[in-house]
């Protein structure tokens, strides 16, 4: 975990570990804490909490691990979740509500409803997703302040 302040804003960086359900949500909780300390509007905090949680869970469940980077600037919060693969075959399909490739075991825990990506998209002001099958996925979300 790396927290450093720049002239332009604050950058937070979190490692997310594959299959680590016990720690899943910690990065999101930390981000929320920082945003609250900065006095960010509570409706924006709620939206970022939903989006970061879903992004974090997606990396834990579906990827080989990755990281989440948060840039807090005076006029916006930019959140990037980048994983190390395996990538998404069909992004349009992945963006559909209810579509999921999660295992039965994961579903029994209440995950894998196929709502992660739609929830992220709905929560932020700008949403970008790039994925290369075999390589990895990057999701970028912007929240205006």
């Amino acid at each position: 975990m790396d927290e450093k302040e720049k002239n332009t804003g604050i950058k937070l960086e979190y490692e997310i570990i594959k299959d680590d359900f016990s720690r899943a949500g910690e990065a999101s909780s930390n981000i929320k804490r920082v945003l609250r300390q900065l006095g960010i509007d509570s409706s924006v905090i709620r939206k970022t909490a939903i989006a970061t949680y879903e992004a974090e869970i997606n990396v834990v469940i579906h990827s080989e691990g990755g990281k989440m980077v948060v840039n807090i600037e005076p006029d916006k919060i930019e959140i990037t979740a980048k994983d190390n693969g395996p990538g998404i075959k069909d992004i349009d399909q992945a963006m559909q509500k209810g579509f999921s490739t999660a295992s039965q075991k994961v579903r029994e825990l209440g995950f894998g409803a196929g709502m992660g990506l739609p929830n992220m998209k709905r929560s932020c002001d700008e949403f970008y997703i790039e994925s290369e099958f075999g390589k990895g996925t990057t999701v970028k979300m912007i929240f205006k302040l």
């Binding site: 899943a24 949500g25 939903i50 995950f111």
Partner: peptide, 17 residues
């Protein structure tokens, strides 16, 4: 109210206040 009892419910409850 939930029947899920693993650690992740704490993160959700906390994130959503």
């Amino acid at each position: 109210i939930t029947v899920q009892t693993h650690m992740n419910i704490v993160a959700i409850a906390s994130l959503l206040n």
